[in-house]
Amino acid sequence: MTVELVLFYLFGSVAVGTGLGMILQRNALLSALLLVGNFFCIAALYLLLQQQFLAVIQIVVYTGAIMVLVVFVIMLLNLAEDHPRPKKNSMQYSIAVALVIGFLVELVYILMFTDRAPAGFHPEAGKLGTVESIGDALFNKFMLPFEVASVLLLVAVVGAVLLAKKRLP
């Protein structure tokens, strides 16, 4: 077993574990924290695939920004500890079960019955994921869209402040 394989199994199992924990945990805040752990493990898996940029973005965007938002919402809403369990015979419940079974069948089908011979690791794939190659693309070919995106964000920020804070006459 190579080091990579060991790391893959380590992070993979922790990712599955935290994922399961998130669903099974009844405390919303703990559930959110477990999701953070899950995101970290996924980021580590990206690193193993030599996608450094994606790994960093995964942590910055998901664990950094989105999860903070989720935690904020949980705290603002002040969810009760003993949230009632969904009724077993409700419409929602049966649809959920049907979807889960459908997804499971799909997974089994793909894993068992389709040809999944590994295409091998593309020699160029490692280079694509680096910060360097993405920076290169952003500041050469995609220079203009990159700059326009900054104007777009500026307008969004100004608009948000304007609509939320400007004093009413």
């Binding site: 995609f142 869209p145 326009v148 104007v151 777009l152 608009g159 400007k166 009413l168």
Partner: peptide, 26 residues
Amino acid sequence: TDLVTLFLGLELMSLSFYILAGFVRR
């Protein structure tokens, strides 16, 4: 001349319009 530019332009315009539409807050 590229769908990326087109999309960003469209969003810039739309976002500005959303804000302007709500300008009379009272």
